[in-house]
């Protein structure tokens, strides 16, 4: 009888401890992971689901709650309604067109500057800090300065060069100013990433290629570029996604441009519809999803195009690798 009893006791104690441990670890899991989990559901997952529901609902004029399920008719309207085509799709096109011009510039210019920094001329750390500096400030502050600097009447630039260009008044120059703003206040991140990438390129490869008599251009193509490929891919990806979401620069610089329709980006259009009184939430939600799909599609094409051909690699893991690779 005795041995049996001891085993039960031991088993009981063991079981008890296991249960206790499990309860304790469940408790700490709830304590540590719970807050974020709730926030993630409330402020990330739920809005996504809500967006899907909204894009398939109609709204009454004075409520933020979806009124009626209408299927895909909002999407259909966005694609077929002439006003939508004129307003939304033209702004999508402006956004893509601008991105196609600005993204290469936002790669080439910081790369060139980073290569100069990499030569380590005296004071290069100060130069690096100066070039990164404009991007850290609020867009409204730096934009306000640019607005005054390039102002038509008594602007610094017009007076300095003795010209009278209405920089923000015409569609063409207005977009030019947005581009200037994007380069001045936006290349800092790419620039720093390239600086770090160039620093890590294997120096012995340069020496070897120098001994082999490779021209500087060849050296750039076959040593430098492959050496910073992860940084390059990441910067192209983030810049492209970033400029597809272009809003602040246009909003801040171009509120007084007469032809507003011609300087509106897609996000600008969505933002305006949200701020307006029309309460067309169903359409706006649908537009957001459509624009999101376009951005996702562009970045997917870009991911495939710049990835080395390795069959069977999952897209998500490729994405994570980029994020990891400095």
């Amino acid at each position: 009888m005795k041995p049996v009893r001891t085993t039960t006791l031991r088993e009981y104690a063991f079981k008890r401890e296991k249960l206790n441990n499990r309860a304790r670890s469940a408790g700490s899991l709830a304590f540590f992971f719970g807050p974020y989990f709730i926030c993630f559901i409330m402020f990330f997952a739920f809005p996504l689901v809500l967006g899907l529901i909204m894009s398939m609902s109609s709204f009454t004029s004075n409520s933020v709650y979806p009124a009626e399920f209408v299927g895909f008719s909002n999407f259909k309207t966005v694609f077929t309604n002439p006003v939508m085509i004129k307003d939304f799709w033209s702004s999508v096109w402006y956004t893509i067109r601008f991105a196609l011009i600005i993204v290469p510039l936002c790669i080439i210019i910081p790369l060139a500057l980073a290569m100069l920094i990499n030569l380590k001329p005296p004071g290069y750390k100060i130069f690096r800090a100066c070039i990164y500096l404009p991007g850290i400030f609020p867009l409204t502050a730096t934009g306000l300065i640019l607005l005054r600097m390039f102002s038509y009447h008594n602007g610094f630039i017009n007076a300095l060069f003795d010209i009278s260009v209405d920089w923000f008044g015409q569609t063409g120059t207005a977009w030019f100013m947005v581009g200037l703003f994007c380069i001045w206040g936006g290349i800092g991140g790419n620039f720093i990433i390239f600086c770090a990438g160039l620093e890590n390129v294997d120096k012995s490869l340069y020496e070897a290629s120098g001994i082999d008599g490779a021209s500087p251009w060849k050296r750039f193509l076959y040593v430098t570029l492959p050496g910073i490929k992860p940084q390059l891919v990441m910067c192209i990806f983030t810049s492209l996604c970033g400029y597809m979401n272009l809003y602040g620069q246009n909003y801040i610089l171009l509120s007084n441009t007469p032809d507003q329709d011609s300087v509106m980006t897609a996000v600008f259009r969505i933002q305006n519809m949200l701020l307006g009184s029309s309460r067309s939430y169903g359409y706006v939600a649908a537009m957001g999803i459509i624009l999101g799909l376009i951005i996702a599609a562009i970045s997917a094409v870009q991911m495939i195009a710049t990835k080395e051909r390795q069959g069977g690699n999952k897209r998500v893991s490729a994405f994570v690798d980029w994020k990891k690779s400095q």
Partner: peptide
Amino acid sequence: PGIVSTTPQLIN
């Protein structure tokens, strides 16, 4: 992309 959830986040 963040723009997908901008509108519903506002309603949220």
